[in-house]
Amino acid sequence: MTDTPQRTRPLRVLAAMSGGVDSAVAAARAAEAGHDVTGVHLALSANPQSFRTGARGCCTIEDSRDARRAADVIGIPFYVWDLADRFREDVVEDFVAEYEAGRTPNPCLRCNEKIKFAALLDKALALGFDAVCTGHYAKVILREDGTRELHRASDLAKDQSYVLGVLDDRQLAHAMFPLGDTVTTKEEIRAEAERRGLAVAKKPDSHDICFIADGDTQGFLAKRLGKAEGDIVDESGAKVGTHEGAYGFTIGQRKGLRIGTPAPDGKPRYVLDISPVTNTVTVGPADSLDVGALTAIRPRWCGAAPTGPGAYTAQLRAHGDETEVTAELVGEELRVRFAEPVRGVAPGQAVVLYDGTRVVGSATIATTERATADVA
């Protein structure tokens, strides 16, 4: 097997430049490798000031200027492409709709699937580009039979393959991740950026949702969905409190419940279930969060779909640990059973399957099954 198939010959590469240090160094590495690189910044908000402000995100005027300055230093052409309408429809509105339905979405996965490797890639290919380059930490490996695989980055501490688990064969064939090939820490990336004269070398990373300007997800949803008072109940159905919108809660949440009635055993309570139909939030003890199995829908495979049941590891959050599972595709549903119970699994999250470091694929969690005593 060989890494990064794009290196077999010089390619026309469109480098998505967010204005951060990772994408700037990725573009610089692609250009240094001899590719014909053009930088592009995605304008994802019709009003950039309504998204994150300061050096925190990827959607501000400041970020577009940082990206342009980096492109100038690298010596590549640079453009700004307006994808605000597509982003609002495919990412922001989807995010709101998922929460309204009582699910917990990951907007970064949706952005990678619908924007960076769909809208952006389609436009790039139509303009004659061969690949889209981003600053994600992951690897594309070309096998001898010509197929491509998505793998974890060499630096597992920075690995971002989870949010790329939505990419299919066609998208992987045109994806380039220059930061995933070598064991490189973030400090080394910043040092490299400084050596290259890139002003973003010391720019802080963005961690929050880019389209929620103040980081207040509940406040953002309240403005979009309005207040909807409902009951907080325990597992027996007894009312223990009230809320102003079920969308403001996530499975496994402990803080901010504002329950006046203490639990009989005096222990903390967690969100166990969110019902948008009855506008009810159910809370209970931590051990009631244990999940033994799940069913996921809308599977997407980074290669051929698996046949029959198989043993894998699964990741349930962008920065979560792997856990051993058995998984089987039944019709259009992915059935996953955990070797050991896991907690805090919420419908709407993505489950990403791995075979070693290889990303097998991902699916959206639809339902969960509470762990029982016979789940080992």
Rank of each mutant, 00 (worst) to 15 (best):
C133Q: 06
T242A: 14
D3Q: 06
H243E: 12
T60A: 12
D265Y: 11
A311F: 06
R358Y: 04
A228M: 12
A131W: 10
A153P: 05
E244V: 14
G57Q: 08
V233R: 15
L14N: 08
V40C: 12
A228E: 14
F87C: 02
F117P: 01
K114Y: 05
F177S: 03
L198D: 09
K116N: 05
A363C: 11
D3E: 12
L14P: 03
A373P: 10
K239A: 13
A84D: 08
R195H: 10
L42F: 05
P77I: 05
L14R: 13
A350E: 03
L179F: 01
A33F: 05
V375S: 10
D85G: 14
L167E: 11
G20C: 07
I209S: 13
L83G: 03
L127F: 10
I297F: 11
F220C: 01
L121I: 10
E328N: 12
L179T: 09
A318V: 04
P347R: 06
A263D: 13
P48K: 02
Y312P: 03
A246E: 10
R170D: 13
G310N: 09
D72H: 13
E32L: 07
L172W: 04
L198N: 09
R196L: 15
A67D: 12
I232V: 15
T307M: 08
E192D: 09
L167Q: 07
T147D: 08
T147L: 00
E369Q: 08
L156F: 06
A373L: 14
R86W: 03
L179P: 08
R358D: 04
R190K: 02
P264R: 08
S18F: 00
V163H: 02
I274H: 12
V360W: 05
K158T: 02
Y162K: 05
P10A: 15
A346F: 07
V233K: 13
T104S: 15
R148L: 11
L156Y: 06
L42Q: 06
A138P: 08
T307I: 11
P5Y: 09
E192C: 12
D36A: 15
A314E: 09
C59G: 15
R317L: 02
G19I: 00
T261R: 15
T217W: 04
S275N: 04
V25Q: 09
E328F: 04
E62L: 02
T60G: 04
A199T: 01
A31M: 09
A350I: 00
G248H: 10
A70N: 00
D265F: 09
V336D: 07
P264L: 03
R68M: 10
S161N: 14
A293N: 02
P107T: 05
A314Y: 02
G20R: 02
F249W: 06
L179I: 06
L164K: 14
E322G: 07
L316Q: 07
S206V: 00
F87A: 02
D90W: 10
R269G: 02
F220W: 12
H174I: 01
D214P: 00
R300K: 14
A24D: 09
A373I: 12
V233N: 12
F249R: 03
E332P: 00
A28Q: 01
A193M: 01
G356W: 08
K203R: 15
L150F: 11
C111E: 04
G308A: 05
V37S: 06
F220T: 03
D66W: 00
S206Y: 00
A43C: 04
E113P: 07
T217D: 05
G344L: 04
H174A: 13
E332S: 14
R7D: 14
